[in-house]
Design a protein around this nucleic acid. Structure first.
Lengths: 340, 340
DNA sequence: CCACATCACTGAACCGGGTAAGTTGTGGAG
DNA sequence: CTCCACAACTTACCCGGTTCAGTGATGTGG
């Protein structure tokens, strides 16, 4: 069953290939009557333009790329990426762009994938996540002149578009809230320390704690996995001067922390308050449900996709702040018990 | 910065385009010396064959498609899909096939996407998940002659390759284990009732319970989300003759069930044993860690990708059983208390 | 009534690889 | 010395859209 081409349409309509191309693309150069006839034939025989042929002449692949550089076991459980992907899709689907995905192990591999994709003209642009201080991908993207949008930051990405959320404001809000509840000893379990947004959060956390006169502003570095989250929590809760509240950099570590508290016989929120970053269904799933810093991840992804499509279209795009992060109080935070 | 083509290589090597093509593809027709020279020039200028041009002549897009038909909020939290995707990647990456993704809302939209992708020659085959009884996608795939692999089942997919895991055996093992611990009242909270593997599991569950003389083999239908998991669990635990053990069709609902038990003041595993399906990090994250029916999802995905690539290569592929599912006992299962 | 613009289209080149068919040049057999 | 086989190429066309430079027909203003 051969798939139909514009030549087939041209033959049936009794016109040339060129006329069919004009008609299908809404270009001037054909009469309304002919255009209608061509469109109805295309409809009838189920015509879809060969994307390869189109890309070959038009130089647009109508696809964007995304690499995921996290171990499989954390990718699976982190709602973040899938939320982001759904957001992309909403925009890309509407413009019938495809999303091409690749899971990689290292930033070096990501660079390789970018080079290959771009060299193959497989994609028109990429969405870059998990950026680091002095990320090796940035200069490569610039050198290749590959349209891109960086998610995360804010940080220095040169001329490359960037979209970020106000993590500093969010963590400030969370700390203020805990202090208002009466907490003095607040700790934080962070994600990978080399990621830019982790650094931004750490800096902001330390500065707000200092400004509020809290001297126990300890950040324990972890890596977003449940195991590390448990380990860090145990370390915090074993100590003599243990915190009465912990802020986690993602929901997975927060859930792990809750389990550790339960396992150690501490009640949440009685003995320990917990705040999760990135509100996902996971936070409402456990008992007690977790207070979280919420943002609309899907909308974040959609906005990133829009920026990227604009960049591909050659429009000037810059540094955009995504929708606000806000605190969603649930059952895992309360005033600390008096004797603590 | 124009991206290099074989014509550039040909010019620099002083040969024709044809010779370059033969050299790069390992075809006979060029001397070893020339081949080496051409390859080193290609290396030097960072040549990557334009995938569009290649697809246009060779008729292979070197990409496969995957549609995800679940609401975004469940996609994010379900480790299953990401596990599967990582598995695909392992195989696809090695053969430098790309994975193209689309999130859709309905099976009808999935069909549309298949038609478009195939019409556009954007992909060489698709991986089909979440099949239903009398799935509308199967006849369309056959009609389009689009190479495909169906994940899930076993069921009737006609000539289309299928890969499935022995869900019936797994649930039998879980029930036998619970009975051996002393449980008599075992319930199950299932995923979407219209999915084929849900039906297979339900049938197997009922049959093993009947054969072991358990008369309380109740399956409550849910939809894999935490909310439905909680709802179903509450319904089960409110009743007078409440079960002493519940088997959940996924990990998310199992975690939600655990939270409901805690919220109702029941101890797990003392008052209630819990078994989750699909062991993911989530199961080890909570307290107590959940006994689960484990399978290597990544390996499952990798095998599916291999089958699909074989089907694309025109090889005959059939009905394959994936690696075994096995029970991983953890802290959420124990003998029921004597008075229950 | 003619010059000129406009419309609706045709024909052909082009994108960048793949590949069948044709063309050299070389060496060995007869 | 000639003929032939074969390696090592070159040439030319194919894939299926896009696009630009024509072309003939029609309309229009002076």
């Amino acid at each position: 069953m051969k798939r139909p081409t514009i030549a087939d349409i041209a033959r049936r309509a009794g016109v040339s290939k060129g006329a069919v191309s004009y008609a299908l693309n809404g270009q001037p150069g054909v009469s309304e009557a002919t255009r209608k006839r061509i469109l109805s034939i295309a409809q009838e025989i189920g015509f879809n333009a060969n994307s390869a042929a189109r890309a070959l002449s038009g130089a647009r692949a109508r696809a964007v790329g995304l690499t995921l550089c996290r171990p499989a076991r954390i990718l699976g459980i982190e709602p973040w990426f899938m939320g982001l992907i759904s957001g992309f899709e909403a925009e890309l689907g509407a413009r019938s762009y495809a999303l091409t995905l690749q899971v990689v192990a290292t930033p070096e591999q990501e660079v390789e994938v970018y080079r290959r994709w771009w060299g193959e003209r497989r994609i028109d642009g990429v969405i870059v996540t998990d950026i680091r201080e002095g990320d090796i991908r940035i200069p490569v993207l610039q050198q290749l002149q590959l349209p891109a949008v960086v998610i995360g930051g804010p940080g220095d990405t040169g001329p490359i578009a960037q979209i970020w959320s106000d993590d500093a404001g969010a963590i400030t809000e969370a700390v203020r809230y805990l202090v208002a509840l009466g907490h003095h000893r607040i700790a934080r379990v962070s994600g990978n320390a080399d990621l830019l947004h982790t650094r931004n959060r750490t800096t902001a956390f330390e500065s707000v704690c200092a400004s509020l006169g809290l001297d126990h502003a300890l950040t324990i570095p972890a890596d977003y996995t449940g195991e590390e989250g448990s380990r860090a929590t145990r370390r915090l809760l074993i100590g003599g001067d243990r915190p009465t509240a912990i802020i986690y950099d993602n929901d997975v570590m927060a859930v792990a922390g809750l389990a550790v508290a339960q396992e150690m016989g501490l009640s949440v929120p009685g003995d320990l308050s917990i705040v999760a970053w990135d509100d996902s269904p996971l936070c409402s799933l456990v008992h007690p449900p977790l207070t979280a810093l919420s943002r609309d991840i899907s909308a974040y992804g959609a906005q990133a996709a829009r920026e990227l499509l604009a960049a591909i279209d050659g429009q000037k795009v810059g540094n955009v702040e995504a929708g606000r992060v806000h605190l969603t109080p649930r059952g895992s935070t309360a005033p600390p018990r008096q004797d603590l």
